[in-house]
């Protein structure tokens, strides 16, 4: 799980730096996109979509022309038809809503605990020395290994699933917040001492804003892991949810349903990430300004 987490964190990093390089191409292009911001954005978008669209259309054409069978890898039209079918039977909303609910509750619990313990361990040395070794040891356990125990403890239904997701979300958030607080600039803390701020005021006016960017990155990693773990959770026995659609599609030999579920996961995950980023953007706007200038 630590490897998965590493690559997720790396991906989050990539996403961030991707934005940077996307926002700061060669100066001529930048001037152009500043004058025509809409054009600049749609150009980026078009480039980003070119490859997947070409692949989808190519596959569609190949199957239509009889060059390929498309039984194991159905063409986009069949996947869309499956979406339409699920929607018509009223199942799409149910599965999406179920999965989303599980992720959000698990994310809420895991992120809440991660923020709390991360802040505690970051701010207090005794707390860190007491808690961190244990938490690090627990982190070394692949989270899926908890599944049998969670099922014994919490039953086969929602609680065990939410618990697994919460565990997955917890660690990146905990680590991110703890590190962010520990690496805060001592020089800024001295500014607060010079103006004789109380501990609470220092936390509110310096600590919190200073660690916000890293905290948000940690939350995004956590959310990504939440989606990873909801699949695992729904694999272990669910009667609804996108993960159920995956298992059902495999057992019933419906690759179009599997692909539809995969696409739904991708869209749902991206949408949740976008909401998180948009909701927190005002808090770190001061940083985005710097990014635009890079």
């Amino acid at each position: 799980m630590s490897a998965g987490e590493g690559s997720l964190a790396a991906r989050a990093q990539d996403a961030v730096s991707g934005e940077v390089s996307g926002d700061a191409p060669a100066s001529a292009a930048r001037r152009l996109s500043r004058r025509l911001p809409r054009l600049g954005i749609s150009r980026t978008l078009a480039l980003a979509l070119a490859l997947p669209l070409a692949a989808a259309l190519g596959w569609e054409a190949a199957v239509a022309a009889g060059l390929a069978q498309g039984r194991l890898l159905p063409p986009p039209s069949r996947v869309l038809a499956t979406f339409a079918d699920l929607q018509a039977r009223g199942e799409l909303v149910l599965h999406v809503a179920t999965t989303l609910w599980r992720v959000l509750v698990g994310f809420g619990l895991g992120a809440g605990a991660g923020l709390l313990l991360g802040a505690l361990c970051g701010a207090s040395r005794p707390a860190r020395e007491t808690l961190d070794p244990t938490l690090q040891a627990l982190r070394a356990i692949p989270s899926i290994a908890w599944v049998p125990l969670f099922i014994l403890w919490l039953g086969i239904f929602e609680a065990s699933k939410v618990a697994l997701i919460a565990v997955g979300v917890f660690f990146p958030v905990y680590l991110g917040v703890c590190d962010a607080i520990r690496s805060i600039d001592r020089k800024l803390l001295e500014v607060s001492r010079v103006f004789r701020l109380s501990r609470v005021e220092t936390a509110r006016r310096i600590l919190v804003p200073a660690v916000l960017p890293e905290t948000i990155t940690a939350l995004r990693s956590g959310l990504g892991l939440g989606f990873m773990f909801v699949v695992a959770a729904e694999f272990m026995g669910a009667s609804e949810g996108l993960g159920y659609l995956l298992v059902d599609g495999q057992q019933m030999g419906k690759p179009d349903q599997i692909l539809a579920a995969i696409v739904a996961f991708a869209l749902l995950g991206k949408a949740c990430d976008l909401v998180l980023v948009a909701a927190t953007r005002p808090l770190v706007a001061w940083q985005d300004v710097a990014r635009d200038r890079l």
């Binding site: 020089k187 500014v191 010079v194 103006f195 005021e201 804003p209 200073a210 001061w286 940083q287 710097a290």
Partner: peptide
């Protein structure tokens, strides 16, 4: 009052809020 070698401004506050930092 203290002025350090580096400005040590709070990057998330605008100039006016930085100047008012000690006046809460």
């Amino acid at each position: 009052g203290v002025v350090f070698q580096e400005p040590r401004l709070l990057p998330w506050l605008d100039v006016a809020r930085n100047v008012g930092f000690g006046l809460s």
